[in-house]
């Protein structure tokens, strides 16, 4: 290639295209971050999540400061003279104690570890499995899709509590089992969405282009199609975390998840059974944290979806954005 032709052709295009100005150098991710930063609900949700994560990480620190371990039954200081639990604000027990004299604040902090660990890990496993299954089903179609799609339908229509009871009675309850059970019942939700998206992406011209270049199926699936599914998958995963947290709390409440005495928000609630209005702090605080966490994740998920979907930009702008002719 001679230099002169290169020059001649380059001269046909000005270095700075006016049509491109204003969107230069902004990656899709940067755009999403920029939009999130203007969304007050998203900021508050992130702050709440960060605080709860800090609480979980700092749980041992809180235990050290207060001097109470999460499972310590503080026989001397944790109950009043009559052996009754202490209300919130009592000396040394910010959120009070339960009927065994355990520090509720410390238990909540350790419970946050369980909740977040289960929520994030179960969602991560569910997302990976869901994406792979959904991609294969949607991309290949045919009999593979028929089988995988049916499996996902079955999983979604399964009575999961019954299934969990059976599993626990066979294997005994544990953290690992809880995570796997939640992941198993959650992957289908992501898998179905990914399958649907992959089905439509498969027909796009860029896939045909990759095919014409000689790209193999795996490459097309994971290098070409997958990046186009990142947006819905992120949104779904964010929304799955609170579902998984509630799932864990439900299982633990029923005694099928995290085994006592290890604290989790779910089994703390189950402990509070029957205490009625007298010892309201038994259930109010775990419930509050559960609600706050799931609400924050749900609102963040909605905010991320809005930020990822450019059509909602119009709502932010407050006016109808019309593309001129």
């Amino acid at each position: 290639m001679s230099l002169s032709t290169v020059e001649a052709k380059a001269s046909e295009v000005p270095a700075e295209d006016p049509a491109v100005k204003g969107i230069q150098g902004r990656t899709p991710l940067q755009l999403v971050v920029a939009r999130l930063r203007t969304d007050r609900v998203a900021i508050i949700s992130i702050v709440v999540i960060v605080l709860i994560v800090a609480l979980a990480i700092g749980a041992p620190l809180i235990a050290a400061i207060t001097g109470h371990g999460p499972t310590d039954t503080n026989v001397d200081t944790g109950t009043d003279a009559n052996g009754q639990p202490l209300p919130p604000g009592s000396a040394g027990y910010l959120l009070g104690t339960d009927n065994l004299g355990r520090d509720i604040l410390v238990r909540i902090a350790f419970g946050a570890r369980v909740s977040l660990l289960v929520g994030v890990l179960a969602t991560a496993i569910a997302t990976i499995v869901g994406v792979v299954v959904g991609l294969f089903a949607g991309y290949y179609g045919g009999w593979l899709d028929s089988i995988l799609a049916r499996i996902m339908d079955v999983v979604l229509s399964f009575p999961y509590v019954l299934f969990a009871i059976v599993l626990v009675s066979v294997f005994g309850s544990s953290l690992e089992l809880t995570i796997l059970v939640i992941a198993f019942f959650s992957f289908a939700a992501i898998g179905r969405i990914v399958r649907g998206q992959a089905l439509s992406q498969r027909e796009k011209e860029y896939v045909e282009a990759a095919h014409s270049l000689g790209a193999g199926n795996l490459r097309i699936m994971f290098v070409d199609i997958l990046p186009n599914l990142v947006a819905p998958v992120i949104v779904l995963a964010t929304l799955l975390i609170p579902t998984a947290i509630i799932f864990e709390a439900t299982l633990s409440f029923l005694g099928l998840g995290i085994a006592l005495p290890t604290p989790s928000w779910g089994n703390m609630l189950s402990d509070a059974e029957g205490v009625g209005f007298q010892a309201w702090w038994f259930y109010i605080f775990p419930m509050m944290f559960l609600l706050l966490t799931t609400l924050a994740f749900n609102l963040l998920g909605d905010a991320v979806r809005d930020a990822l979907d450019p059509r909602t930009e119009r709502i932010f702008a407050g006016r109808r954005k019309k593309k001129p002719a």
């Binding site: 011209e205 860029y206 045909e208 282009a209 014409s212 186009n228």
Partner: peptide
Amino acid sequence: MIFQDPYGSLNSR
């Protein structure tokens, strides 16, 4: 091959 749609034929991600 060169495709018709300059938008759809390039992977936007």
